[in-house]
Design a protein around this nucleic acid. Structure first.
Lengths: 242, 242
DNA sequence: TAGTGGTCTAGACCACAGC
DNA sequence: CTGTGGTCTAGACCACTAT
């Protein structure tokens, strides 16, 4: 059955929906189908590949979910704008990152306490003024060298037993993703000069810049945590592949 | 037909596969199904929701693709590790970013020339020694204020007419995603002190740190470009939502 | 009105896991 | 061996677009 000459890309062991995905991908990658191009209809691809419509539909739907195609009901399927002008990068959990490098991760709790949300905080995080917040400051070390100063605010109603955790075996990030799964939120990455306390905790010289990741997270639409993570600029970088 | 009490999440206007996705999502988000939990089989969910297997399959497959479930043929479907301990962030095209803020973007070409790959470059990018490379240095301005110094190396075989582009109407990033679509590659984000030339081009004081994004891209497995993008640390940050 | 994609059905065969 | 997920079929009805 697999003798259609248009199925040139794939070895025949691949499922049909993948062969169709690769067929379309190659058309786009080769430039033959540019942005805005109207690609064949589902029924046309059914005939071309001798498969049923559900199979073609799955291939095109997945490409559409990946942002490569735009499908318009009643109209047709088009090659999407290359929104791939943007770079998707992944900021991983610091402890996990360190362990995957084969290094040892250790945490140092600098402070850990309870406070009431100020009016400003309440407004920023959409919580009631006076709501209980936990505040933690933890330094993370890779092979005994400090690489992150984590200053974090946690909504007590989302993580009531935050103060009782054993931070030598878990990190705030790991704990919070367990009690408040599927976090969403905002982030910024910036350069900042740390104050004396942070510089000392990170064993940095005075006036050396830090790479700072700020992250506000919500779980199920409710504020969970705001974290400010300081990294020594001279020995830390975010890295990954896309 | 939609009277199953277990379908409590969704308004009845939603497609069945979405109702099933939301049902599973709620179980995970509420913590009822923790990491490693074996969830009901496809056939069980077929009965529970009175739908066919393909519909349940689509719901679970999409959640699996999103990394929320792990499906093991012959065994069952499990709640995945919360790899959501990582933050996915998006570094957008600088020109697009500026325009979406309602500001004006302008480019200043500092230099643009042709050179031959050194042995070191050849090794780093998996191209032949002596291969033709283009080198461009462009400063991007937002409302006439410089915010990015882009130092870029481009493989001439992937973009032969790179030198002839009109950089007042397009950016290297936009041009390259057109001629070499679907880029993949590596990146790092770090803090660096710029040299005198870069500091001058970005109108920065001496010894002020920069936020630097390095990015190597490949299209279709072939090296396309290496870019080093310098941003003034005191007035630029990466921001977004996840 | 004809064509398109969005969704769904009620079956089917297969590869694989675990007993 | 039974039960699981992976894939696929040949239909179907619907909402929407374009003419």
């Amino acid at each position: 059955m697999n003798v259609d000459p248009s199925r040139s890309i794939s070895n025949e062991a691949q499922p049909a929906y993948l062969q169709i995905k690769n067929f379309v991908l190659n058309k786009i990658q080769s430039g033959e189908w540019q942005e805005g191009h109207l690609i064949p209809t589902e029924l046309a691809l059914c005939e071309q590949f001798s498969v049923s419509r559900m199979t073609v539909n799955r291939a095109l739907r997945e490409l559409s979910n990946d942002g490569l195609l735009v499908r318009i009901k009643g109209s047709g399927t088009y090659v999407a704008q290359p929104k791939y002008q943007s770079t998707l990068i992944e900021i991983r959990s610091i402890a996990q990152d360190i362990r995957e490098r084969g290094h040892t991760h250790r945490s140092q709790v600098i402070s850990m306490n309870r406070l009431k949300a100020t009016a400003k905080q309440a407004k920023a995080y959409a919580i009631p003024t006076g709501a209980t917040l936990f505040h933690s400051v933890i330094v993370h070390l890779e092979n005994q060298i400090p690489i992150q100063y984590e200053d974090r605010l946690v909504d007590a109603s989302m993580a009531p037993d935050y103060l009782e955790q054993d931070w030598s075996h878990t990190t705030p990030n790991e704990y919070l993703t367990r009690v408040a799964p599927l976090p969403k939120g905002f982030y910024t990455i910036e350069v900042q000069i740390p104050n004396a306390e942070i510089a000392r905790a990170l064993q940095m010289k005075a006036n050396e810049p830090c790479l700072v990741l700020n992250r506000t997270t919500y779980s199920g639409g409710h504020f969970t945590s705001f974290a400010r993570m300081w990294h020594p600029g001279d020995r830390y970088k975010f890295a990954g592949r896309t």
